[in-house]
Amino acid sequence: MIRIENLRKTYGKIQALCGIDLHVPAGELFAYLGPNGAGKTTSIRILTGLTRLSAGAAALNGHDIAAQSTAAKRQCGLVPQHVNLDSELTVGENLDLHGRLFGMPAATRRQRIAELLAYVELGDRVHSLVKQLSGGLKRRVMIARALLHNPRILFLDEPTVGLDPAIRRRIWSLIKQIQQQGTTIFLTTHYIEEAEFLADRVAFLDSGRIVAVDSPTALMAGVGHWAVDWVSDAGLQSAYFPSREAAQAAGAARHNGFTLRRVNLEDAFLTLTGKKVATDANAQTVHGQGHGAHAAATRNPTGGQAKKGH
């Protein structure tokens, strides 16, 4: 369980977090969704003891992160956004170091390392130097390392950033399995599809403030169920409708073509904040794998994506 009350962080005159209040119950997969610079990583850094909070309070399974930092740290595992494995050490040595830092006895350490490397399908790489592994394999080693000491809360900061779609889906499957074993998961992402697929609840974070918290379905339903996209002189425009028929009718009234698709979390975020979560490059990935299956996609000259309705 994670409890956050009026959490604030300032860097000089910059307010990175402006009073966050959250409660994540045990066993939930909670996603923090927001654009770069929204405060996602700052929140995770504070909760895991990497950064000091400026004001407010937070507790992990009842242990205050400031007053009982050692006990709080024992509750959680962290997979940071960037690879922070020791590239000069082997996979096994990296995990062994982690186990020692968490005070695990030698026999337990050995057993857990073997179990977890098998779990992330890296059982044969225990003696490989980390610098010899690909980005996706390093990410899996980091997940195994974060789980080594049996944490009850797992923090994943952009766990699939920079990975190709196939590896991304493999990591998602792993995250779901971890949650099914009872671990609370706190995930940050700016991939819409990731939050939609994985999260029980999503918080929209914008400029250090939470603007909405709910299930992905409820957040999307707040906007509508179907969306019509079209390209005008002002760029890509969208409108949202409660039914497919209403959306189809509105699209048909436009003479320059349109896209009919299901509403996604990006639409909900855009409606609430006036901003997009994902960059255009991310948006392309999302649309390509997502809901716009009724449309043939073409790319417009500005780098955005326009689609012609059938």
Binding site: L50, T70, R74
Partner: peptide, 18 residues
Amino acid sequence: VARFYWYIFEEFQAAPIG
């Protein structure tokens, strides 16, 4: 190097050690 380039220092910061 561990702190600024490899970020390994974070592994120590996140661990329950004094």
